[in-house]
Design a protein around this nucleic acid. Structure first.
Lengths: 355, 355
DNA sequence: ATGAAAGCGCTAACAC
DNA sequence: GTGTTAGCGCTTTCAT
């Protein structure tokens, strides 16, 4: 038998540090009613005397009482917690850190708060996105938001087949079963590439790992724009660099040493773009005179870099709202369609000078 | 009476979309044992037959069963959830967005995950920090981490008097009752100011709202460094600018228009520093030639700005670990002392040129 | 080594 | 309008 309920904290021993948390019983006793009445009062039931209700609510507040949510959830079989999961690269021990992901998290936090949901934030090994479902399975959360697809489209599809309420930030891939929300990556890739071509560049490098759906889509846009201009993509100019800064730097250094002939680059994050600029300069090439650089994301500081970065602006503020909306739809049993939001190219100095 | 337990989901109707979540009962029945045995097996009790344990664990896993945490918590009176709260300015509707705060959140997320805690993330009106205690009162969380003190030192002290397990990111103030963790703000202010003075600057402006404890401490360091150099602080050169970018820009514009004579500025965030540079340039002053600028925080991109920013590096990665450690100490009943971590000045181009 | 049963704190159907 | 009571899913004491 579990230890019996402790006697109401006696004040005889002045040093009792954590008086047993107040519970409904106590309020009931103090108010001279039953717990049922207290419950009704606190939940604004309408079959209760207005006077008693006021009295009880008042008392509860003055005593700083609030209901035990675990118990309430258990009884009422409800829960308003959404798990937000940021994948990280377990191998490189790279943690939640990309400023863009962090902004998305902030945006989601706002949207969830606005709709009265609680947000559980965690990270998960990018190779095992399916583990994120643990939040749902354990009953801790009733909905799941994943920041990024990484390489595991397949795991996400499986989760969708289990009918889990799931929204993923990322690109919409053909025949995808889960609900994704993201910027229009193909458009972003195309806008950036067209801009480079129109300003006279001809050898445009593409930097990003196309195994990631978002990057793959951007690459499609890049290829499309090249084709429109009557050029064909040169596989030599495609660099599958990771996003993690220090690893990326290695890739970029080698790539730039090997390829002296490109006159522009589309980098799949602003951080990559900045690193690229650094590497190019170290090798004596000027940006934008010798090489024009376009970034991706439009982080808050992109406008203040040296040079200010031309970049594809992602709709961060909108992202949270859209993801939460899609999730809520699923949680109420509707099927939520994936959403692709428009993106815009912000032209700044990193692509300014003529060739 | 609550609706009685539903019959185990029959598969006769093939379209039952959400079969009632599996529970311990089901596993017990399928394994031909009692729920008590299942519970023991799953919790690795040692008074259970190794064979049965294996069999049950296996079965549970194959069925994707996991315990209902609300029920478990209720029974066991335990909870491993920590609430992390980011204050925001309700008036300006400025949400969770400062890149520095977001990094701190990431750092805390990592530290909590490493120690097996769940993290509930939310924001709260900066004027009502005390509302954050709701997480504790409602039993949803057992510990509270607040990012920043804002103006409400007093509310925090009250929470501490209630003996709530609480850790605040921020500066350690005299006679403070709560546990804070933060960089050494006074040192940061002093390092930055000394550096400016040593490179020949004489009229050093201070930009930041000293009503915030962290800023106040930096200002103390600033004043100290001036005094060491035999100079006295000129109140005219102190600007109580808010952190929010658009409001800040207004303040900076007016300040710079009014004061043409300062040759250096210590700005209390990197974002403020960048805005300051922009405003100065718009008014025809060069950085660093005419005005040297020091930022604060050392955001990931500070090294890539134009010009690369001299700034005070805050120990972000260490921050999460320290805060969680202090919180855990409190949760196990110990008194946790506030911690002040060293900070370092990173010298870059924004202060480079001679006067 | 296992099962029966009580009860964590709360809500709601039912009786009055 | 209010009290009585059963039970949400789980853990653990006690009995076997």
């Amino acid at each position: 038998m579990p230890r019996s309920k402790q006697p109401p904290a006696t004040d005889s021993t002045s040093s009792s540090p954590d008086p047993r948390r107040l519970q409904m019983d106590d309020i009931a006793r103090l108010a001279g009613v039953s717990t049922a009445t207290v419950s009704r009062a606190l939940n604004g039931s309408k079959l209760i005397n207005e006077e008693t209700r006021k009295r009880i609510v008042e008392l509860a507040r003055s005593l700083n009482y609030t209901v035990n949510v675990a118990a309430r959830n258990l009884r009422i079989q409800e829960n308003r917690t959404v798990a937000v999961v940021v994948p990280y690269d377990a191998k490189s021990r790279q943690h939640i850190s990309d400023p863009f992901f962090l902004s998305i998290v902030g945006s989601i936090a706002d949207a969830l708060t606005d709709r009265g949901y609680d947000m559980l934030l965690s990270r998960v090994d990018a190779e095992r996105l399916d583990l994120a479902a643990g939040w749902l399975d354990s009953g801790k959360a009733i909905g799941l938001i994943l920041i990024g697809q990484w390489r595991h489209h397949d795991q996400l599809n499986e989760m969708a087949m289990r009918k889990l309420p799931l929204v993923v930030w990322g690109g919409e891939m053909p025949q995808q079963l889960y609900c994704s929300v993201g910027g229009d990556n193909q458009l972003g890739g195309a806008l950036a590439t067209r801009h480079l071509l129109q300003s006279g560049r001809r050898r445009v490098a593409f930097v990003g790992d196309a195994k990631l759906p978002e990057v793959w889509l951007r690459q499609q846009g890049y290829a499309l724009a090249l084709k429109e201009a009557g050029l064909k993509a040169d596989p030599e100019l495609e660099l599958a660099a990771p996003f993690e800064p220090s690893a990326a730097t290695e890739f970029l250094r080698e790539f730039c040493a090997l390829h002296q002939d490109f006159d522009a680059a589309l980098c799949c994050s602003d951080v990559l773009a900045l690193l690229m600029i650094q590497v190019l300069r170290a090798q004596g090439r000027r940006v934008p005179e010798d090489v024009a650089i376009v970034g991706y994301d439009d982080m808050p500081l992109a406008a203040y870099c040296d040079p200010p970065l031309t970049t594809v602006h992602q709709p961060v503020a909108e992202a949270g709202v859209q993801m939460v909306e899609a999730l809520v739809a699923q949680m109420s049993g509707d099927r939520a369609l994936s959403r692709t939001m428009p993106v815009y190219l912000y032209q700044r100095k990193s692509t300014l000078a003529g060739a």
